[in-house]
Design a protein around this nucleic acid. Structure first.
Length: 480
RNA sequence: GCCCCCUUCGUCUAAUGGUUAGGACGUCAGGUUUUCAACCUGAAAACAGGAGUUCAAUUCUCCUAGGGGGUACCA
């Protein structure tokens, strides 16, 4: 086998692809790309009771959406159970494992005793030396790994540095359950070996497992992979990421209107950096990424920074791409179905034409869509508070005076419209804003929008004049 | 309880045995401006605490505190 780097992303399908998992996948992907190696995908579904088909799909979707592709077909760990069982038997035959008949109650008592005595809690090794003739009948045994009782197990971690565990603190773990299914720590070792994994990049929460797994690797006479344990991501308050914070699936970020490029850029900078570089292309990430520059402390998730990055990527994205993303996103939104009905082909075309002015002002696609509401609104427009205030008093009179001027603009272009409105403002001795704001209110129903000439042009001559006219009529009705 | 890890502006981070401790987000103040954004300029803002090593520690060592992870016949 060559010395090519092979990493793996190995989620357990008990939920969606959460943000920490997404970053782990990103790091594995980047390291593989950086070294010209491969990233494999392994679904760790040995706990069949908790694994679901839906979770598997969510994880694959999440990875695809983020643009993180893997090499070859995903490996489903459960399908390899027979191989794992064989290795457990081999360990048993070698004298590196033994059958354990302890009951759950006995195990519980052991843990409590150890704890009371200030020792590391865990299995006390009762069945390690006990004769099989003493085995209770009718009880299926589990197989435990015979962990070294003394000495040390050392992890030369690429992120954490040299981490030393005293073997006395690592007990004899179960590698094969009494029902014959393998446990995580055995499966991981066998699969990492069989898949030729050279680098294990995963969450910090697996650091102790790295020690246990190292012991199993050694008992099997296999080389251990190189480890890199990445600190976990915390919520804004520094506590463990919960659903309340950002521990959402990546599909939730998609639904909130974040762009995959932005999320990737945000995640790569969470715990890793390259000098002062903040915004970087995928190629740059690949070129610069390395394990040594990963920080050792946990990072807090900061939505404000994500939003800032998202705004940047939004502005940089081609208009057509944003329209396409919006088309895909709308049906997933709370009122998406209703909104979708109101946007016809002409609506999508208007959206595309208004995009330069819209994307400049939005932090997320959801925000962008909201600010585009005036494009799909039907007359007479509903005015929000600030907008109706703009039209109170002189606002409507101004519009009534401006309306004929606009009617005279031909062709209906931004330049012509701007000249007309500016000319009107000058002649009437007002600042442009005095005319622009009521106009904005009449055309969009709000006090903020893209540039007003932009709005006029996108809306078109007929619709624009009608919306302005609506406000003048209202004025007249009030007066009579 | 026991084991392991971590600690630089509010947040993400950079750097260094001697620096005005840098950048980004956010915040605040200006500028620009048809609104809002964007953009430009500027400001406030950090080496957790205590010992030790050293001519000199944010940087090296130890202790304390705080945070996190693990401690399953879960992964």
């Amino acid at each position: 086998m060559s010395d090519k780097v092979i990493t793996r992303f190995a989620p357990s399908p008990t939920g969606y692809l959460h943000i920490g998992g997404a970053r782990t996948a990103l790091f594995n992907w980047l390291y593989a790309k950086h070294t010209g190696g491969k990233m494999l995908l392994r679904i760790e579904d040995t706990d069949q009771a908790r694994s679901t088909e839906g979770a598997i799909l969510a994880i694959l979707d999440g990875l695809r959406w983020l643009g993180l592709d893997w090499d070859g077909e995903p490996v489903y760990q459960f399908t390899r159970a027979e191989r794992h069982r064989q290795i457990a038997e081999q360990l048993l035959a070698q004298g590196n494992a033994y059958r354990c008949y302890a009951s759950p109650a006995e195990l519980q008592a052991m843990r409590e005793k150890a704890r009371a005595e200030g020792r590391a809690p865990g299995y006390d090794g009762t069945w390690r030396h006990r004769d099989l003739s003493e085995a209770p009948s009718g009880i299926a045994p589990a197989i435990r790994f015979k962990a070294p009782g003394d000495g040390e197990t050392v992890i030369e971690d690429q992120v954490q540095g040299r981490v030393v565990f005293a073997n006395k603190d690592l007990d004899d773990l179960v590698i094969l359950r009494s029902d014959g299914t393998p446990t995580y720590n055995l499966s991981v070792v066998v699969d990492d070996h069989d898949m030729g994994i050279t680098h294990v990049i995963r969450g910090d929460d697996h650091l102790t497992n790295a020690a246990r797994q190292t012991q199993i690797f050694k008992a099997l006479g296999w080389d251990t992979p190189i480890y890199a344990h990445v600190p976990l991501i915390h919520g804004p308050d520094g506590a463990k990421l919960s659903k309340r914070h950002g521990a959402l699936g990546v599909e939730a970020y998609r639904a909130m209107g974040y762009l995959p490029d932005a999320l990737r850029n945000y995640l790569v900078r969470l715990g890793w950096s390259h000098g002062d570089s903040e915004i970087m292309s995928t190629d740059e990430m690949i070129q610069w990424f390395d394990l040594g520059a990963i920080g050792r402390s946990a990072a807090r998730f900061d939505f404000a920074k994500l939003e800032n990055l998202n705004g940047h990527y939004l502005r940089a994205a081609p208009d057509a791409e944003l329209v396409a993303r919006l088309k895909a996103l709308v049906p997933e939104l709370p009122d998406g179905a209703a909104l979708l009905e109101r946007i016809d082909a002409d609506g999508w075309s208007k959206l595309q034409r208004a995009m330069p002015g819209l994307k400049e002002r939005a932090k997320t696609l959801v925000e962008l869509l909201d600010s585009a509401a005036f494009l799909f609104a039907t007359r007479p427009l509903a005015l929000d508070g600030p907008a109706s205030k703009l039209l109170d008093g002189p606002g409507r009179d101004m519009l009534a005076a401006l309306l004929p001027r606009l009617e005279g603009v031909r062709p209906w272009t931004q330049a012509g419209l701007e000249a007309a409105v500016r000319g009107f403002a000058e002649e009437t001795g007002q600042k442009l804003g005095k005319a622009a704001q009521p106009l904005r209110a009449a055309l969009t129903g709000r006090s903020t929008s893209p540039g007003i000439f932009d709005v006029l042009e996108v809306l078109g001559r007929e619709e624009s004049l009608a919306r302005i006219g609506d406000q003048c009529v209202q004025k007249n009705l009030l007066n009579f």
